[in-house]
Every structure is written in structure tokens, then in C-alpha cells.
């Protein structure tokens, strides 16, 4: 399946992927409103850029073959879509136990503080290209089948 792969050699640490993610997952689809208003009501990007010295890399859900988050999920909110291979998330079932947060070896799951539910990359359902990949100014993110 196609996944988002980061390239740490060319990640410039601008964090624009986070902003693109935020916009794509906002109600308004407008960066300024998403940051100023929707973020206050719990909206968070599914991505995070990690930095150490000059090295930086943008991480999000890896959509693992055998996801530990799915194993850890107590409510069945996280599940593997057999057809697409994506690790999917049904928000209505999430009970906010954060088991998946602890289980994820990549730290790719985040909390929505106001909803008490998780936030996780859905590879931009409904978009041809994930927003982060499209917005990266240095082609340090690729969406491909490896």
C-alpha cells in the first residue's frame, strides 16, 4: 500500500506539513481559522516534526502491517482495513483510554484534549495526495508504495 515516507536528509524542519495537516482536517479548511479558532477547540495535526541537532524528520502513523495500537485498542475504535491496508479509526467508538498512545512505537498518535479522543493520520481520506506531502516545500515527504 502507499504510505507517507519522510526523508530526513531533506526535511528542513519548517513544520509546514503540520500546518497542512491541520488545515486538511479542519472544518473551515482555512489555515488561519484552523489555527486561531479550531485549535482552541481541540484540533491538532496528525503529524509532528522531531528535531535533534541539524537532523529533523516529520512523523505520522506508519499504518503498520501488524499495528500494536489495534491490538491495544479496548473498544474496537482502531482496526485494520483488510481491503486498503490502512489502520483506520472510528472516532465514535473511542473511549479515550490512551492505550494506543502507549502502544504505538512511533509516538504517532496524539490526543484531542477537548474531545478526550485520539487524533491519528488517515492518509487524508478524500484527497488524492495527503496534505503534508503536497505542502512539503522540499519534497522530503513522499507518498508511495515501497
Amino acid at each position: 500500500m502507499r504510505r507517507v515516507y519522510p526523508n530526513k536528509d531533506f526535511c528542513i524542519g519548517c513544520h509546514i506539513c503540520e500546518l497542512a495537516c491541520l488545515t486538511a482536517h479542519s472544518e473551515s479548511k482555512d489555515l488561519i481559522i484552523a489555527v486561531r479558532e479550531e485549535q482552541a477547540s481541540g484540533l491538532r495535526p496528525c503529524k509532528a516534526v522531531y528535531e535533534k541537532g541539524p537532523v529533523c524528520v516529520s512523523l505520522s502513523c506508519r499504518h503498520c502491517e501488524n499495528p500494536t495500537c489495534v491490538t491495544a485498542c479496548i473498544s474496537g475504535a482502531l482496526y485494520k482495513d483488510e481491503e486498503t491496508g490502512k489502520t483506520k479509526y472510528d472516532e465514535s467508538k473511542c473511549v479515550g483510554c490512551w492505550s494506543c498512545l502507549m502502544a504505538c512505537p512511533f509516538g504517532a498518535i496524539r490526543r484531542n484534549p477537548s474531545k478526550g479522543k485520539i487524533i491519528k493520520c488517515d492518509l487524508c481520506e478524500g484527497r488524492d495526495m495527503p496534505a503534508c506531502v503536497q505542502a512539503c516545500p522540499n519534497a522530503a515527504l513522499s507518498y508511495e508504495d515501497r
Binding site: 524542519g13 541539524p54 522540499n138 519534497a139
Partner: peptide, 12 residues
Amino acid sequence: EARLKKRQNPEI
């Protein structure tokens, strides 16, 4: 500078 030179991706 390591932090700056990677702003040029040779492919692009």
C-alpha cells in the same frame, strides 16, 4: 551548514 544545505534537494 548541515541545517541549511539540506534546503537544496538535488532532485528538485
